[in-house]
Amino acid sequence: MTDATAEIGDTARAAPEDTLIGCPICDAVYRLSPETAAEATRCARCGYRLTLGRSTAITRVVAIAATNVALMMIVIFLPFLDLQAGTFESRASVLEVVVGFSSGIMVPLAFAVIAFILVLPILRFLFLIYALGPILAGAGNLPNAKGALRWAFKLKPWAMAEIFMIGVAVALIKLADLASVATGPAFWVFGLVVLLNAYQDSFMCRHTLWTALQDNKR
């Protein structure tokens, strides 16, 4: 992928089909021709990636979101880790991992953890399907599709599935001398979700997605 430096708009030579695009980081404004807007562009002043050059992003974003929702259902119900110490055995799904917190003052923390690792990631995927799915299906936008897409972007820093995976790795090492730990199927499925999620982020071009949502018939 080549990075084209966005040229500042020359108002005198502006073509009617050009779009104005603003940099949310430094407030610079650019006039992009449809060809330039389809490429990867950077803000000349601060380096923010105005467009990612992913004009066919919608199919992939929706496909990956749908896959991840299905995989997350597996993650919730199958065993995640399996621990053996002498005659004791404990098998925990991701939901049970959170139940470990659920006594007394720890209840709010349990809710926060379940939100960060399950609810918010799944909600993000559902928002993306809700907002962009109808475009693929050739249907009009669903009510408040704007809000769904906006929140899919806003929730990104709060969806922490990948951080949870590193936490699992650290926990496994801490447990190594106390008990023998085996990874369950949900562990590997969750790892797959994290990888797919990272791949999906490379297609989340704000310009492409918002333009598509705007141009789609209501």
Partner: peptide
Amino acid sequence: GRWSMIDVFVVAILSALVQFDVLA
């Protein structure tokens, strides 16, 4: 910044898994 959450998740996992009555 969000990566600081690692330790919180480690605590969550450990306290969910290690519940072996008197042993640990």
